[in-house]
Structures are given as structure tokens and as C-alpha cells.
Design a protein around this nucleic acid. Structure first.
Lengths: 337, 337
DNA sequence: ATGAAAGCGCTAACAA
DNA sequence: TTGTTAGCGCTTTCAT
């Protein structure tokens, strides 16, 4: 059996009218006799007619489809972002074509190619950890496809951006650690090609200098996951001049540090304070419960999609670049004094 | 600036050849002079030519796009499934159009309509909690679009299905508790209208009867989240005839129970054993680390996508219905003896 | 080895 | 009020 999807041609033939009449009837055009219109609409309904979106998009040269590229899907933050995006996409009538980069530059590049080929009318993305040059994103701009970067943004491409207020979040968290009596605060972060790393590090550094605490490079590590954090934290804690606090770029890392700290029988938070970033479910499942910087992925997703839709609707206008900053909130639990 | 995407027509004009020559060159057709072919390919590369997938799909009457409908995205299981699907989709060269039902029948129906309109070549879905009739899915079948249901399946539609072996998982977990010396095993589950609840409860009950342990209704509670689990477990633990083990339908609930148990200073696992279901990140973040029934969402996603791709490739063949059952695996950590 | 032309499903300008 | 036709980007059959 061949694809039995019914077309306007079929309806035209069946009703002995022209395709344009059918098209007009289905689009509820004003210049059409009520009788014909009703007849066509009735027939279409009965036969489950559905417009072919491919043909429509081709004709109108716009596809009502938005492309999304995320580094990963099983990930509290990114799945929250996706959920938020769907909220807005649904409301605004856009479909979503989903890609995943797995933090690979090559996959990201390929996804962008597919997205352009698919004639999407806009792209939302958070760049891969591997990515260090941006010609592929520039191609989107060259093809006049609006892009909004979120979280891991790309500053080299003129585009809208939605970011977590990483700097302020990190600053607040570090200051909190300082104010509760910590002096040697270690910082575990992602590779510095990512803006978020730079910003969170900036907040950390500024908090230190604001309170006259010298920066000790040995306390800053590139380490951003649970498994790696355990040995790295263990080593630091066994050193001569051990830290009395840790601030990590995400909850997983913080929980790895927590694991190592407990394993060495340090008292938490009396001897060692720990603060994460994200506030996923694991932060409350841990014992002691993790103090962390809360970031709303859903807000990020919603804002990014809203910005993109706005940009798509006002494509002709002056290309005003809008950045949106989503506030974080320090959630104090049990791993800090 | 209008959409500057370059087409074969542009190439043809620039190189003073016909569009068919360009098309052949780009498809590496054998009957074409090497010179022309090279010239065209070179020009296409330089000008970042990308085929218009919409036009291609229309011509070939197949879109290389698969539609996915999930009830929710921020959800450990569903995001895992999605990740697994992407693994296979990527490998097999399909793009993914994502929809989310929010467990609403209406949204699910609308998503299916969009999917048919979008000419997807297959659909993967887990039905909404609200859904009780299935005409919309039948329409997919009528339009000759293969469907694979996963997790929350629909038995009324002839289609392939992928499910978790909930019964066996619950049976194995409960038996493990029994074999390690527990006699009064409480069971916390979701409302019984869900298949998974029924099946998991079935496994629990059968394990008890297999080992000659009488069922105590007071030990079975409808409770499936962290916050509710705390007071419910606390009350049970303070009762005369307290349970010596808990088995919960998901990790969140198990971790709520763990929280309550620790709070009452029971020794874990010596005095109280706890077992969850899912194996999310929180299971290893907790202390002690949670024993749980691991269900691989990624395997479910991969299997579902593989089954679908196979079905798409063999569309002409006899419509063999294949069900796939994904095994669970008991992951013993520190909350059980 | 290359070109002309039809057609996928749909819309819209132009005719009638 | 309705029909005819061109064209969106591409492939492919049939000519040349």
C-alpha cells in the first residue's frame, strides 16, 4: 500500500473543482461561495485531509520549525531547558527539530548543516565543549537564520544570548563561603573556552580580591565531573595546606568532592564547606544536603525560545542584539556553615 | 537581505550548464564527464551549497525524519530514552522532530497531526496518562507510518513495542531483600492505573508468596515522591511492628525513605534495608549509596529507534509485530545488606 | 555527455 | 466566484 495521504488534488478531482478552489476553501478565503467552501471543508474533514507541511514550507519559503542543538539530553540542566523551550514553541506554533552534539565539534557542525538543509527558521544552541571556532554558526547568520545562544554562548557571532548570571552566582556563593569563615577556597571548573567557566571563575576571583584574599593557583582545577573530582579533591585535602572550602561549577563535581571529603573523615561543614552549581535533585538527595547555586533551566529555555521567536517575527528590522540574563539564587543547605 | 541559500539553479546559471547536470554532478552520477563534475562540485563547495531537504523529501516522498512524542522531558527516564534514541537516529541518518504531550490527550492528538503533516517516516511514542482512546494513532497506521510504542504502550494498535521488564525487576529486588534476611518489606508505589505500578506490585507480591511471607496491607502505600515519602516512612518506622525493609517504585521515593530512616537513627542496612527503582545520578550521590533496580532508559530508546528504523526499511514486508523487553538489573549498593 | 521537461503539493497572480 | 498557470528546489525520464 502506498502512502495514502490525501492531497488537494484528490479533493479537487472528487468534487470536480480546481485545486485553487480547494486551496482557497481550506484557507477560508473570503472570495468563495459559501456552498463550495462548505462542501470542500466537509470532504476534507471526512477524509482526514492534512496539509503537506513540506510543500507548504517550500512554497512559503519558511518552515515553522526551529532547530535546537544541545550537548546532551540526560542532564538536569539541559533537559530543563528543553522543557522550557517546548512550552513556548507549543504556544507559538513552532515545531522543534532536535540535535545533540555530545560535546563534539564535528557533530555540532553536522547538526548545523542539517538544520540549514532542513530550512529551519531559527536555531537555539548551547555550544559543545570541544568547539573553539565558529564558522558553522556564521553560516547560519549568512543564511539569514536567526540564532540564539543559551548558557554556553558564542561571543564571536552577532546574535541574541540567554545566560545564567554566572558571574553574580559565583560571586555570591564565594562571598558566602568567605563570610562564613572560609579562607582557602578551592575552585573546580570546566575548560576555560566556555564562557560560563570564565564568568564563574571571574565571580570567584572577584569575591576573593574584594575580601583581600590572595589567589592561590593550586586551588583552581579544571575538573567538572563526579568521577574526576574524587581523586583531585582527595589529593588536595591530603596536602599540607589544604583548602577549607570547595566551590564547583556543577552539582556532580561538588558531590564528588563531598564523597572524597567524607571518605577522609573531615567534618562537613565545620572543617570543609562545599558549594555546587545547578540545584538538581541530587543536591537534596545527598547527605549532608548540598548548598548550591540554583539556576532555572526552564527559564533559560523559555527566554531563549521567546527571544528567537521575536527575532524571527521581526526579521526585517534592525538587527538589535538582546541579551537576557537569568538570575541565580544561592540555596544554602548543609554543606556550608 | 533575503534568504541567500544557494540552489542548483544558481550553480547551473553560474556555470552555464543545465540544472540536471548540476544535480547529476552533485549526486556523483557515473555518466558525466569528470571535468564538469569536478567543476560543479568545486563551485558547490566554495559557495556552501546545501541541498534543500524539503524539496528532496517532496521529490522522494520520504523525509528521513522521525517523530518522537514524550509526556515530559525533565524526567530521568524520558530524557535517557531520548538520549538513546538520538544515538541510533544519528547513526542511521534520521533527524528527530520532538513533541511533548504533558500527559494531555489533546496535546498528544495535536502532535500526531503535526507529525503526519510533517511527513515523518515513523513515530516513537509513550502515551499520555490521560489517553484512553486511540484513533489518532490509528491514523498513523492508516497513513502507512510505522509506529513503535515504548514504556507506556498502546495495546489496541498493531505496532511494535518496547517495555521495561518491571515485573521481573521488582521480583528480583524483593527476593534479594528476602534472601538477605528481611521479613517485613514495605512497598511504596504509584497509583495502580499505570501498567508499571501493577507490574511492579505483581513482582513484589509474587516474591513474597514464593517465599511464604504473608502480605500485610499496611505495608503497601500509594506514595511515589520524595516529599511524601518522608512522613509516610517516618510513621511506619515508629509503629509497633515496623518494617525492616522498603522497596520503592522510584529512586526519589527511596531517597525520601532513606532520609526519614536516617533521621530516626536506624542503622542502614543493618536495621533497615532500602531499595529503589531507576538508578539515576541521585542514587550514587546519596549516603549510603542507594541499592536500586537499574532500568536503562537509553536501552529503551535505542531499541525503540532500532525497531522503528527496521520497520521503515522493510515497509513492504509482512507487518510482523515485534515486542522487545528490556531487562532490568539489580544494582546492589549500600542501603541493603 | 548533457539538456528539456514533468512533477512532488501547495499558493497566488492573473484571467475569465 | 472560479479556473489556469507558474513556480518553490530537486530528481529523473526521455531526447539529443
Amino acid at each position: 500500500m502506498s502512502n495514502s495521504q490525501i492531497t488537494i488534488k484528490d479533493i479537487a478531482k472528487a468534487l470536480n473543482v480546481s485545486v485553487s478552489t480547494v486551496s482557497r476553501a481550506l484557507n477560508d478565503s473570503p472570495d468563495l461561495s459559501g456552498a463550495t467552501k462548505q462542501q470542500v471543508q466537509e470532504y476534507a474533514r471526512q477524509h482526514h485531509y492534512k496539509p503537506n507541511l513540506l510543500a507548504l514550507s517550500m512554497k512559503k519559503r519558511e518552515s515553522k520549525t526551529i532547530g535546537v542543538i544541545v550537548p546532551q539530553i540526560i542532564h538536569h540542566f539541559f533537559s530543563s531547558v528543553l522543557e522550557g523551550m517546548m512550552d513556548v514553541a507549543e504556544k507559538e506554533g513552532f515545531n522543534v527539530l532536535l540535535f545533540r552534539s555530545r560535546d563534539s565539534f564535528e557533530k555540532e557542525q553536522h547538526s548545523v548543516q542539517q538544520l540549514i538543509s532542513s530550512q529551519v527558521c531559527g536555531v537555539l544552541t548551547s555550544i559543545a565543549k570541544e568547539t573553539t571556532h565558529y564558522e558553522h554558526f556564521q553560516e547560519l547568520v549568512d543564511n539569514n537564520i536567526p540564532v540564539v545562544f543559551f548558557d554556553r554562548i558564542c561571543v564571536d557571532i552577532p546574535s541574541n544570548r540567554v545566560v545564567i548570571d554566572d558571574y553574580a552566582g559565583a560571586l555570591a556563593a564565594t562571598e558566602y563561603l568567605i563570610k562564613t569563615g572560609c579562607h582557602r577556597i578551592a575552585f573546580f571548573c570546566s575548560p576555560l573556552n566556555l564562557e560560563i567557566s570564565k564568568n564563574r571563575r571571574g565571580g570567584y576571583l572577584d569575591a576573593l580580591s574584594k575580601h583581600g584574599i590572595p589567589v592561590d593557583k593550586d586551588l583552581i582545577k579544571i575538573c567538572d565531573n563526579y568521577d574526576e573530582a574524587i581523586p583531585v579533591a582527595t589529593e588536595m585535602l591530603q596536602s599540607e595546606n589544604r583548602p577549607d572550602a570547595f566551590f564547583a561549577v556543577n552539582d556532580e563535581t561538588a558531590l564528588g568532592i563531598l564523597h572524597a571529603t567524607k571518605h577522609l573523615h573531615f567534618k562537613i561543614p565545620e572543617e570543609v564547606s562545599i558549594c555546587g552549581f545547578t540545584d538538581g535533585f541530587a543536591a537534596i538527595a545527598s547527605d549532608p544536603q548540598l548548598t548550591t547555586v540554583g539556576q532555572s533551566g526552564q527559564d533559560v529555555g523559555r527566554s531563549a525560545m521567546e527571544l528567537l521567536v521575536e527575532k524571527i517575527r521581526h526579521k526585517g528590522d534592525q538587527p538589535l542584539i538582546k541579551n537576557k540574563i537569568i538570575k541565580t539564587k544561592l540555596i544554602v543547605r548543609e554543606t556550608t556553615r
